[in-house]
Amino acid sequence: MKYLLTVTLCAGALGWMAPAPTEAGSIERACRQSNRTAASPELCSCIQRVANTSLSASERRKVARWFDNPHQAQEVRQSSRSGDAKLWQRYRAFGDRAAEVCG
């Protein structure tokens, strides 16, 4: 049983770390266009892979807009709407995970 669990986890990790498709996702595109010096293609691709496992497609599109307009993120963070609070929690978890995985 322990062996099966180890193999399953390793296979899942390898699938997750597989090269991204040639079409960039919304987070990756926003990252690359952000004109930040640290925004290398490798880093942006890694962040997109983490986003794919952490956020829904609609959340990824919304968060991608924050690269151009960080004030939108601030509005979500300070919002009293429960949906915005949930998005902010998921975004923070995504950011923590991206920092851990992508460096």
Rank of each mutant, 00 (worst) to 15 (best):
R77D: 13
V63M: 05
G12P: 08
S54I: 01
S79W: 05
A13V: 15
Y3C: 07
N52H: 04
W88C: 13
D96N: 12
S26N: 11
Q89E: 14
M17Q: 13
C102D: 03
S34P: 05
R36D: 06
R29L: 10
K86W: 13
L5E: 04
W66M: 11
V76F: 09
Y91C: 05
E28W: 01
Q74I: 10
A20R: 13
A39F: 06
E59G: 00
T37C: 02
L9D: 00
S54A: 08
S40K: 11
W88N: 15
E42Y: 05
C102T: 03
R61L: 10
Q74H: 08
V101C: 01
S82L: 12
A11P: 13
Q74S: 08
R65T: 13
M1T: 06
N52E: 09
L9I: 12
T22R: 04
R29N: 09
A18D: 02
R92G: 04
R29D: 05
C31P: 02
L87S: 10
P19F: 01
T22N: 07
L43F: 07
T53G: 02
W88P: 07
R77L: 14
R60V: 01
S26F: 08
R49L: 00
R32G: 03
L5C: 03
R81T: 09
R61W: 04
A24C: 01
E59F: 01
T22W: 00
L43W: 05
A24S: 06
S58Y: 04
A64L: 01
D96C: 08
G25H: 01
L4Y: 07
Q33V: 06
C10R: 02
L9N: 03
T53W: 02
Q78I: 02
S82V: 14
G83F: 11
N35S: 10
L9V: 13
Y91H: 11
W88Q: 14
R90T: 13
G95P: 00
G15L: 14
R92W: 08
G95C: 04
S26Q: 06
A85G: 10
A85K: 14
R77G: 04
A99I: 09
G83L: 11
Q74N: 09
L14E: 11
R92E: 12
A93I: 14
A99N: 15
S26M: 08
V76D: 09
L87G: 08
Q78E: 10
G83Q: 14
T8N: 00
